[in-house]
Design a binder for these strands. Structure first.
Lengths: 214, 214
DNA sequence: CCGGATCCTCATTGATACTG
DNA sequence: CAGTATCAATGAGGATCCGG
């Protein structure tokens, strides 16, 4: 990216992360950990391979990621975030929190992946009853599976299926995510196609984090 | 901007704010308040007028700013942030905080303006002695003037000159900002050309805010 | 002068095909 | 699998022009 040429930390930050796809690549590396080229490509539907390749080189040159060749038997390179790259997590959190306001409208062609189902509760909710007993919530949206685990006052998430969930939320992505992030209530979520099975009393434990007032 | 086509709040947020110049326009409106076209252009050295015009229309269409025609005698339009636009402040703060790491190197051709001198201490420092007596620090960098006022446990800043500052910091931008944001110490700042006059004991009261650990 | 609109040129991005 | 090469389409940057 061409520099803005301004001695301002916002402009200089954007010089590095302002390019198209750059922050989404960082998102994937944050959510998935060290990844191979093809894994990144899968997590970034729509990216052209040449562009992904270019961005990875730029990110490496800027010190945000490191590229590690796997030991000889395997011919595959691993990309992972450096400390600088990892430090972008708060930036992504704030963008994601702000971006929630655009999640209510439906766009049938949007891609949807389990990682994006998983990070939302982990980043955008807290356990309102931190000393409460552990609980497990199964999420199912658009065929993608994720699990929320409330434990030790923290909201953990992981991909996949839980063995014995206390509550299961299944429905279109915006009904599940809208409910979890507090953008819509249970009635509306149900109208949008959500099915909630199990201990509905667990829902109030997920408290959406509020945006800081200005 | 072309949509990323992903049902993810980060991607959807970036659909709106990911275009070149967009976040810097928001920065100017946050720092300057309601502004006219020409004021924005002045605060955004390097932007082409057609691009600024295009972005303002896009921002208005996205609901981030409102455009208000001044009463008939004057033919000037005022742009200001809507609630949605204002809600981007935390995003800009995190980007700016992250971007501080790139401020240590010097690029002689970078533009520099007083607003950028002023927002850094206000956003990136806190008063380490919130119950201490009020104090006033004059900043001078590259001919740009700003004032820090420590009062009621808050770090206020404004542009211009203070009448009777307790401390004056004068030097190249990176020496002043590097010292204030904790990226360099007083010795190094002095080597970089900083002159500090007055109550140096006030410096420790400006505590750089730490980046959240991952 | 203010607030843009138009036009032109160059740089970036996107889609797809291809290679070690 | 992990990219590179190619080329078309889009976007940015810069200069100029125009109506109030």
């Amino acid at each position: 990216m061409r520099s803005y040429g301004q001695y301002c930390s916002i402009a200089r930050g954007l010089d590095v992360i302002g390019d198209r796809w750059t922050l989404l690549i960082v998102r994937e590396l944050l959510l998935q950990g060290p990844s191979r080229f093809t894994e990144l490509k899968r997590g970034l539907p729509g990216v052209a391979t040449n562009l992904l390749s270019t961005r990875l080189k730029e990110l490496e040159a800027a010190g945000l990621i490191t590229r590690e060749d796997a030991p000889p038997p395997i011919a595959t390179a691993l990309y992972q975030l450096s400390e600088s790259g990892h430090a972008l997590q708060p930036v992504l959190k704030e963008i994601g929190l702000w971006g929630l306001r655009f999640m209510v409208d439906e766009r049938p062609d949007d891609a949807f992946q389990a990682q994006w189902l998983a990070y939302a509760p982990a980043w955008f909710t807290t356990d309102a009853e931190p000393d409460g007993p552990p609980a497990v919530i199964q999420l199912v949206a658009d065929g993608e599976l994720a699990v929320i685990e409330l434990r030790n006052g923290r909201v953990h998430t992981r991909l996949g299926r839980a063995t014995d969930p206390d509550l299961t939320l299944e429905g279109p992505p915006r009904s599940v995510l809208g409910l979890l992030t507090g953008k819509i209530d249970l009635d509306l979520a149900t109208q949008l196609g959500l099915t909630a099975t199990g201990r509905l009393d667990l829902l109030p434990r997920l408290r959406p984090v509020a945006q800081q007032p200005a």
